[in-house]
Computed example of a mutant assay.
Amino acid sequence: MPESPVSPTMMDKNLSFSIPAKHCRGRAVRLGPLLDNILSAHNYPAQIKSLLVEAVCLTSLLGALLKEEDAQLTLQAQTENGVVSLLACDYKDGDVRGYVQFDTERFINQALDPSLMALFGKGYLAITFDHPEPRGRSQGIVPLEGSSLSDAVQNYFMQSEQIPTVIRVAMTTDGDRTIAGGLLVQHLPDGEDGKERLHVRMNHPEWEHVEVMSSSVQAEELIDATLPLEDLLWRLFSESDEVRVLSGKPLVKGCRCNEDHIRDVIARFPKQDKEDMVDEDGTISIDCAFCSKKFTISSASLNN
């Protein structure tokens, strides 16, 4: 069977949508080159790659909920003595990045398709929204539970935010090309984003209908690079309700490390701490976990 053509205009984008009659909002994403760029910075085994792809897709969905310029979304999964010790992804103005820290020796002994519990053990999921002032930072932390990261994020909204939520993520790898798609749908019974959600009911009749429709999405639809996201949304919801769709920001790999930023971070440390960072050759070496770039800064060039 010939390979399906992939339109660049259908990849690395998100859509915002609402279903006014049901007081629901949602986000949909489909990722391609962005994932390849992020994965190319690391030599991860296949199972860790899949974990990071799911995390990047979820981060893109959650980041698309932000409305303000310069707002940032950070997703972190951290464990107590897990094979994976830390997974971190963030989103800012359409820039997405992520990495995984794991114990290579212990990972080798894992099953070919390790469960979330096998990789993380006892852990927690932290989702942080950094908004410009005056809103500032808000963070929710919940146990890392479920059969997948998507389940854990869905549980976060149920437990921490008390927002009825459906999240679906799918991915596929064909040679060096990776494609992932995701759908997030939420019920806000007051009918507007940003207001306090009073009397939230998980079994609200409006939500029950949308939950069934959202959950019917197929993995093949999410990762079909020839199916526009707009068509997918109308296929899911428009038979009975009006669907309002707005284009979101293009998504790109966006690690924010550079020499000026590194110098700024180092400058914040006390003088003694900076002296302790200096190697025998008089330089400070910094590795970026997100993009694997290495920076070497001469201590003599720093303002002590």
Rank of each mutant, 00 (worst) to 15 (best):
Q159W: 08
Q159N: 13
Q159M: 15
E161D: 15
Q162L: 12
I163E: 10
I163F: 04
T165F: 10
R168Q: 15
V169N: 10
M171W: 06
T172N: 09
T172W: 01
T172K: 10
G175I: 07
G175H: 11
T178H: 13
T178S: 14
G182C: 10
G182F: 05
G182V: 03
V185F: 02
Q186H: 05
Q186T: 03
H187P: 02
H187I: 08
L188M: 09
D190R: 07
D190C: 10
E192V: 15
D193P: 02
G194Q: 08
E196A: 15
L198V: 14
H199W: 09
M202L: 05
M202E: 07
N203Q: 08
H204I: 04
P205K: 07
P205E: 01
E208K: 13
E208P: 00
V210Y: 00
E211L: 04
V212T: 06
S214M: 04
S214E: 02
V217I: 10
V217R: 01
Q218C: 07
A219P: 01
I223G: 01
D224P: 00
L229N: 00
D231C: 07
L232P: 00
R235K: 14
R235N: 13
R235D: 06
S238Y: 03
D241M: 09
V243C: 06
V245A: 07
L246I: 09
L246R: 12
L246A: 13
P250D: 10
P250S: 11
P250H: 03
V252R: 15
G254W: 09
G254F: 10
C255M: 15
E259C: 13
H261K: 14
R263F: 05
D264A: 15
A267E: 04
F269T: 02
K271P: 04
K271V: 14
Q272S: 13
M277H: 05
M277A: 11
V278T: 06
V278E: 12
T283P: 00
I284H: 01
I284V: 06
S285D: 03
D287S: 13
D287K: 10
C288S: 12
A289Y: 07
A289F: 06
S292K: 11
S292I: 05
S292C: 08
K293H: 11
K294G: 07
S298Y: 04
S299E: 02
A300D: 09
A300E: 08
S301C: 07
